[in-house]
Structure formats: structure tokens, C-alpha cells
Amino acid sequence: MNKPIFNVEEVNKIIRNRRSMFVAQFRENDPVDDNIISELLENANWAPTHKLTEPWRFVVFSGEGLKKFADFQSELYKKRSEESGNFMEATYNKLKENPLKASHIIAIGMKRDLKANLPEMEEVAAVAMAVQNMYLTASARGLAAYWGTGGPTFWPEAKEFFGLEEEDKLMGFFYVAKPASDRWPQGKRSPIADKVTWVK
């Protein structure tokens, strides 16, 4: 294979203009084509991965699947919060209604390969890089997307619903939709010089 030729200016533009857009910025009832979601997932599959463990696992919810996801997380929240006496109707409604405003929701899992004997941090980082690939692809496609860790992300009993074992991690959810507006969010970062030490 010959060395690929990249357009560095385009690469820089995509990276520096990637943005999170949330449910309030979604255009509802106008789904993204499944082929574009497949493109996001294919690009996720090319993230760096030590020992080629490829620890990322994804469950994609769309159409009626969004309702299944919404019902699952809202009812599990209700069960957990009623047991602890912390039930809040507003939280329950948000968990039940927000998923239906997305085009697709991709559950993000980290599948642990214990035989590979890798630090867990490396596997978590590999999955995070896979999600960044999805983020960049979504931005390049002009889509609204964000990675959230709300709902059942940290509830151990939720793992089974997403095909994960006890040693695996549920790392949140990637929401995707068409944006309600053509306006692209402005980015804000403090200077990189404040965060770097050069040693020469």
C-alpha cells in the first residue's frame, strides 16, 4: 500500500470544529440514514487498540428501539430511586422522553479481554478514541451529536441489557440527530501553551 495523501487543512478543520449538540438542538422526526450511522461505526472500528483487542462494543437504537431504550432506563431509574426514596418525576420523564427526540442512540461498551493482560485504562482509552472517530465523522456530516454518561451508565445491573458482563464497562451513550438549525456552535478553548511543557 502506498503512503496515503491527506488534506491536512481539512483534518485540522474537522478536529477543531467538532462540536457537541444536545437534545434541545435536535431536529425531531427526521432520522439520519442508517448508512451514515454505519459509516460512524466503521470509522470507530479504526481507533488505536493495544494488542488489537478492539474493546469497543456498540448497541444501536433507532425507530421502535428508541422506545425500548427509553422504557428500560426510565423504569430502571424508577425502581432504583423508589428503593432509595429519591424518585423525581422530572428525571423519570426526561429519561423516558429524551431518547425519542434522537435519530439514533449508540450505547458505548468496553468489552474486557482479561487474557490480553492490559491495564483497564488502555481499553477505556481505546473506546474513547473510537467515540472520537464517531464524533469527527458526525461533525463532518453536519450532524448533531453528543456523548452523555447519564441514565444507566453507572448502574451495574444495566450492563446485561447492553450485552456486557460484570468485568466490562458501560461508558455512556452517543446521541445522533440532524440539527434543528444551520447554525454551528462556537468553540472555546484556552491556549494550548498553558497546558504544555516543552523539554529540549
Rank of each mutant, 00 (worst) to 15 (best):
T49C: 00
E28R: 05
M171I: 01
I108V: 15
A125Y: 04
A70L: 03
K111Y: 07
N43G: 03
A47H: 00
L143S: 12
S103T: 14
K188L: 02
E123A: 13
Y135A: 15
A126C: 10
P179T: 06
W184F: 00
W155L: 13
L164H: 09
S190Q: 05
P191C: 01
E97C: 08
E64S: 15
V176I: 10
K178M: 04
P152R: 01
F58E: 06
Y92F: 15
W46Y: 09
W198P: 02
G187Q: 03
A138T: 07
M88V: 07
A90I: 05
E120N: 13
E167N: 08
W155D: 15
R183I: 04
T149Q: 06
W46V: 12
E39K: 08
N117Q: 11
F6H: 09
P31Y: 01
A116F: 14
S20I: 00
N29L: 00
A144D: 13
E82W: 02
G142V: 15
Q186E: 11
N35Q: 04
A47W: 00
R112L: 14
E157W: 04
K111M: 08
E123Y: 01
K78G: 06
A177T: 03
K68P: 06
K51D: 02
V124N: 08
V59L: 12
R57I: 01
V127P: 02
S190R: 03
V59S: 10
A130Q: 05
M129H: 09
S62K: 14
L41R: 01
E120H: 08
N133C: 09
E42D: 05
A144L: 07
N117D: 13
N93P: 07
G142K: 11
L40R: 00
A177G: 09
R112F: 08
E122F: 12
F161L: 05
N93F: 05
V131E: 03
Y146A: 11
A44W: 00
E10M: 11
G63R: 09
V127C: 06
L164V: 06
